[in-house]
Design a binder for these strands. Structure first.
Lengths: 135, 135
DNA sequence: TTCCACCTTTACCTTAACGATAAGGTTAAT
DNA sequence: ATTAACCTTATCGTTAAGGTAAAGGTGGAA
């Protein structure tokens, strides 16, 4: 069990961030002492990492809150499981559309790179012909 | 040439958004009348779309400002082109890392879906055995 | 027991990306 | 010339995701 400062360090975030995550309902400490100290196990580390990943690809904490539970096995009954499956599907669709977008962007960037690269070579040739030795 | 309300509509954003983009330096109207009216050509439409895409995949307007120019051919000289190429490379790396992240997330989601699905089937079997007809 | 590093809550501050409203000017069809 | 529909700048408000500081309580090593 780690104190808040310890997992914060391990996860590369501040304690403020962890308390904020707790406040918005992303997770709770595995254990809270009678004096109010928060203690976490290393499962929390995995959760934090996942949250950061999802944030990085553009999800808001609110959206993350909706889906974060999906990553961790939970015992529920039929109804709940069907709801979960629906969330999973929606989330997956969203991710697929983002992947497609990024691949488009990537393609155009590569084209642009080729274009720029070739223009650069041309400029260099001209530069040599007209006498410039450097640059 | 379109007035601001027209491209706004076509692009699916508000005029406020367009003026804000202008304010933060993302682009300028193709033309401004003496009375201050902004006029845009449909090239702007492409730019807006690209901005929205990049926003969707998690870039801030500040980051977008750094890279948006890269998508549109510009005549520059050698030095500038090399700088551009570097930006392109960095941007591409960032995108690649995001794609990888998303693919990981996707993989785990699919696993989780399989797991949930099979548990659901099991629960249904048990439900039938022990007498429940619906749910 | 002392002491420092760490913890607690509370509360105010900040930045990004707009939304909403006010007060007034413009355009173009009638 | 009038009028509706659009435009302008200016300003204030809002939400998200924390940062930062204040004032005080804890834990554990010496």
């Amino acid at each position: 069990m780690f104190k808040i400062g310890e997992i914060a360090k391990q996860a590369g975030v501040t304690t403020r961030t962890l308390r904020y995550y707790e406040q918005v309902g992303l997770f709770v400490p595995s254990n809270v002492s009678t004096k109010g100290y928060r203690y976490y196990d290393d499962g929390t580390l995995v959760v934090i990492t996942r949250i950061r990943e999802l944030q990085r690809v553009g999800l808001s904490l609110d959206e993350i809150k909706e889906v974060i539970g999906l990553y961790f096995h939970q015992k529920k009954k039929v109804e709940a499981k069907e709801k979960t499956l629906n969330y999973l599907r929606v989330h997956l669709d969203d991710i697929d559309s983002k992947i497609k977008l990024l691949n488009n962007v990537k393609k155009e960037l590569k084209e642009q790179m080729q274009f720029t690269q070739s223009r650069l070579v041309q400029l260099r040739k001209k530069g040599r012909k007209s006498g410039g030795s450097k640059n």
